[in-house]
Amino acid sequence: MAKGTMRYWAAAKAAAGTHEEPYDAGTLAEAVAAALAKEGRGGEFQRVVQRSSFLVDGEPVGTRAHDSVVLPDGAVVEVLPPFAGG
């Protein structure tokens, strides 16, 4: 298991109730599942996360399956919800 930081932006930050938090997970899927399971997080957080894009140490995850994205120790996962505008 790797330890790192998960950072939330915009609507993800509002729905999570925090800007960042630590994670302890081996893959992106495990880190996201743990974040979704935190007490007090409702359906809005789940809806935002399901629509979000992710970066791991600044690199886009893209369409890769989250369970195939291995998190190195100390990695920063950015949760980026869709942004309005153009």
Rank of each mutant, 00 (worst) to 15 (best):
M1W: 14
M1E: 09
A2I: 06
K3W: 12
K3Y: 10
G4V: 08
T5R: 12
T5K: 15
R7P: 00
R7V: 04
R7F: 05
A10Q: 11
A10W: 06
A10I: 09
A11L: 11
K13I: 06
K13A: 03
A14I: 10
A14M: 13
A14C: 10
A15R: 13
A15L: 10
G17L: 12
G17R: 10
G17E: 06
G17D: 13
T18G: 05
E20Q: 11
E20H: 14
E20F: 12
E21F: 07
Y23G: 05
Y23C: 06
D24L: 09
A25C: 03
T27V: 05
T27E: 00
L28A: 03
A29C: 01
A29R: 05
E30N: 04
A31M: 07
V32W: 01
V32S: 06
A33S: 02
A33T: 09
A33C: 01
A33I: 09
A35P: 11
A35T: 11
L36W: 02
A37H: 13
K38C: 04
K38W: 05
E39D: 13
E39R: 07
E39L: 01
G40E: 14
G40W: 10
G42M: 04
G43F: 08
G43V: 14
G43C: 15
G43H: 15
E44K: 14
F45E: 02
F45P: 03
Q46T: 15
R47Q: 08
R47G: 06
V48F: 03
V48A: 01
V48Y: 06
V49S: 04
V49C: 01
Q50S: 13
R51C: 01
R51F: 01
R51E: 09
S52N: 07
S53F: 10
S53R: 09
L55S: 00
L55C: 05
V56N: 06
D57S: 08
D57A: 08
G58V: 07
G58C: 10
E59M: 15
V61P: 09
V61S: 08
V61L: 08
G62P: 03
T63W: 10
T63A: 09
R64I: 06
R64G: 04
R64C: 05
R64Y: 06
A65G: 02
H66G: 11
H66P: 13
H66M: 12
D67W: 12
D67T: 11
S68V: 13
V69F: 04
V69L: 04
V69W: 02
V69Y: 02
V70E: 12
V70S: 07
P72Y: 12
D73P: 11
D73E: 11
A75D: 02
A75E: 05
A75Y: 08
A75W: 07
A75H: 08
V76P: 04
V76C: 07
V76T: 15
V76Q: 09
V77T: 02
V77G: 01
V77A: 06
V77P: 00
E78Q: 12
E78P: 10
V79W: 01
L80I: 11
L80G: 00
L80Q: 00
L80A: 03
P81D: 03
P82Q: 14
P82R: 08
A84E: 02
A84T: 03
G85R: 03
G86V: 09
G86S: 07
